[in-house]
Simulated scan of single mutants.
Amino acid sequence: MTFRPIAYADLNARQKENYNFHKVAARLADFGFTSVRLSDDFEGADFIALHIDGETMLRVQLKARMTIDRKYIGKGLHVAFLDGNRVFLYPHDEMLEVLLEATTIGTTRSWLEAGTYTWPKLSSSVMVHLNEYEV
């Protein structure tokens, strides 16, 4: 059998979600987490990451890019996404609070009307706050 890398762009949406889950879960494994995929979003979580310490459990929403969303507020969620080979995992509500204070996203049409904001490309002003959440 010959293994050939796939082109991410050739995957359909469900395949991309599976790919992203496995990439994030593999990175978390390096830090003592076992990740369990949920069959449906439970209170906004796509998967649970359990640490070997027996105490730490993260409820994780998996995204294709950095996202904040009003529907995740108060649910104790972390958001994970890939940016190239980099994996980021941040506590949603804490990041939301920081970004609403440090940026103008709170005044954007996207946030005001839809209650969501995403970053197709990470700016240096966002990276200042995001760097500490790289896994």
Rank of each mutant, 00 (worst) to 15 (best):
1 M>Y: 13
1 M>A: 11
2 T>G: 14
2 T>A: 15
3 F>P: 15
4 R>G: 09
5 P>G: 12
6 I>V: 12
6 I>Q: 11
8 Y>S: 06
9 A>H: 13
9 A>C: 07
10 D>C: 03
11 L>C: 05
11 L>E: 06
11 L>M: 13
11 L>I: 02
11 L>N: 07
11 L>H: 12
13 A>R: 14
14 R>H: 12
14 R>M: 11
16 K>C: 06
17 E>S: 09
17 E>R: 07
17 E>D: 07
18 N>S: 13
18 N>R: 13
18 N>C: 08
19 Y>I: 03
20 N>Y: 03
20 N>V: 13
20 N>Q: 05
21 F>W: 00
21 F>I: 01
23 K>H: 10
26 A>H: 11
27 R>S: 14
27 R>C: 14
27 R>H: 11
30 D>M: 15
34 T>R: 08
34 T>A: 09
36 V>F: 04
36 V>G: 08
39 S>W: 15
39 S>Y: 11
39 S>G: 13
39 S>E: 15
41 D>S: 13
41 D>E: 15
41 D>F: 09
42 F>S: 12
43 E>C: 13
44 G>F: 03
44 G>I: 09
44 G>D: 00
45 A>P: 02
46 D>A: 06
49 A>Q: 06
49 A>Y: 03
51 H>S: 00
52 I>Y: 09
52 I>S: 12
53 D>C: 01
53 D>G: 04
53 D>F: 05
53 D>I: 01
53 D>V: 02
58 L>I: 09
59 R>Q: 01
60 V>L: 01
60 V>K: 03
62 L>E: 01
63 K>C: 11
64 A>P: 12
66 M>W: 10
68 I>H: 02
69 D>P: 11
70 R>A: 09
70 R>E: 13
72 Y>I: 10
73 I>F: 06
73 I>R: 03
74 G>V: 02
74 G>F: 04
74 G>H: 06
74 G>L: 01
77 L>I: 06
79 V>F: 03
82 L>Y: 03
82 L>V: 04
83 D>F: 05
84 G>Q: 01
85 N>V: 15
85 N>I: 11
86 R>Q: 08
87 V>N: 02
87 V>S: 08
89 L>K: 00
89 L>R: 03
89 L>T: 05
90 Y>Q: 03
92 H>A: 00
94 E>C: 05
94 E>G: 11
95 M>I: 10
99 L>C: 06
99 L>G: 12
101 E>D: 13
102 A>Q: 14
102 A>V: 07
102 A>M: 12
104 T>L: 13
104 T>A: 09
105 I>V: 00
106 G>N: 00
107 T>Y: 15
107 T>M: 14
109 R>W: 14
109 R>V: 12
110 S>R: 11
113 E>A: 10
113 E>G: 06
114 A>D: 09
114 A>W: 08
115 G>K: 04
115 G>E: 02
117 Y>H: 10
118 T>I: 02
118 T>V: 00
119 W>N: 06
119 W>A: 01
120 P>H: 06
120 P>F: 03
122 L>K: 01
122 L>T: 04
123 S>N: 07
123 S>L: 02
125 S>A: 08
125 S>R: 14
125 S>C: 11
126 V>G: 10
127 M>Y: 14
129 H>D: 03
129 H>I: 02
130 L>K: 05
131 N>V: 09
132 E>T: 08
132 E>S: 12
132 E>A: 10
133 Y>M: 07
133 Y>F: 05
133 Y>I: 04
134 E>D: 03
135 V>R: 00
